[in-house]
Design a protein around this nucleic acid. Structure first.
Lengths: 207, 207
DNA sequence: TAACTTTTTGACCATAATGGTCAATAATAT
DNA sequence: ATATTATTGACCATTATGGTCAAAAAGTTA
């Protein structure tokens, strides 16, 4: 069905995909404009509809594509054998940073798609959401070794604090990094800053 | 200039204001529709333009209104004499929850307004931003008593962690609470949950 | 070279939505 | 009953929408 599109060179595919993800992520299904997408992607109107019949088909293709990427490049790579929550979350956030760089609008798009209220696509989204991977949020905390926490610490709450703190740090970094090229990012600086925070939290909650 | 609008009954004013704040907050200046606003506010098209000449005037009025509210009902009420960071942030977040309830779209709108790229209003926003109140973020941490922190703790980082954790908690609550009526909100439950988190953080970082 | 296939274009549709107007109606005050 | 004010919504020109399609450009095969 999308074979024509899929046999394009990767670079062009990505350009179109990114443009479309961005537009939908920013405006939602109804308000997203195919004109904007083709302008941003640098292709003609006709070509977009040549690849993806309709706006709706494009949207649903993007969703399936996003789920696939999320599975193979994010959730699928989370190592649930790592039972130390700090090491685990460290790994996960580095992963997320990478995915973010390769697909800057993927997470935003997924969120918009899942929560869309648009009549045109809601039904299709609803049926897709049924066979979705476990939310991932659960996966973050799956099989964590709780015996490492100090006695008397409410582990659930502690994990939430850790989660929020890392999320806050992550968002701050993401803001800074969003515009930059991968090569411009000071990975080492970010990492040592990150580790300083993890170390503080470890001292707070671990034995 | 907006005297006609300002002499309306408060209830109607609020209805119009909230509808407009919501539409602009959700779609940004360019994509916001005055038709949507009047529909949501339950007034006729003509009336909106009778009160606020143009879409642009409405937008700028809303911004000034938002700044005013933020000043008088939020930043202005922060007690910087309270030097304990936990007590301070506790107070601030309760305040924020209240403002959120009275004006659910105010914070989102302000953000959208400040970051807008729309040609129609960018210049006016730029000049307004100059004489803006200190960002508030600074005010959160102004005059905090750092001597209460454990020796050897990097206070700056600790405060960030505290800030992120509270922000995370706050957002979670906001999500839950957004739709509800003020009377339906289980303030006591939220508060005791909040206090449990604050207590944990206090144990982490205070002497 | 020429014939044929595939990819790509953008001017062009009907339709719908946009910000804004204004004569006319309804509500209120005198 | 008259004058004033508040409110309506059909209407306007303009712009944007998702989608089409004949034709041009690029690529392939001979």
């Amino acid at each position: 069905m999308f074979s024509k599109f899929l046999s394009l060179e990767k670079e062009k595919q990505e350009r179109i995909l990114n443009a479309a993800l961005k537009e939908f992520a920013q405006k939602g299904y109804d308000d997203a404009s195919t004109n904007e997408i083709v302008k941003e992607a640098g292709i003609s109107k006709g070509l977009l509809f040549h690849y993806f019949n309709t706006k709706k088909d494009l949207f649903l293709f993007l969703y399936d594509y996003s789920v696939e990427i999320t599975k193979t490049e994010y959730y699928g790579l989370i190592n649930t054998n790592e039972r130390d929550i700090f090491t685990r979350l460290r790994q996960i956030y580095l992963l997320k940073l990478e995915v973010y760089h390769k697909h800057p609008w993927l997470f935003d798009f997924t969120k918009v798609a899942v929560y869309t209220e648009s009549k045109e696509v809601k039904a299709e989204m609803e049926s897709r959401k049924k066979d979705v991977l476990s939310t991932g949020y659960e996966k973050l905390f799956e099989n964590i070794d709780v015996s490492k926490f100090k006695d008397g610490v409410d582990v659930k709450r502690a994990m939430k604090i850790i989660f929020w703190a890392i999320g806050g740090f992550g968002n701050e970094i993401l803001e800074e990094v969003k515009e930059l090229e991968l090569s411009q990012v000071d990975y080492d600086g970010i990492l040592s800053e990150f580790d300083a925070y993890l170390e503080m939290l470890r001292k707070c909650f671990y034995k």
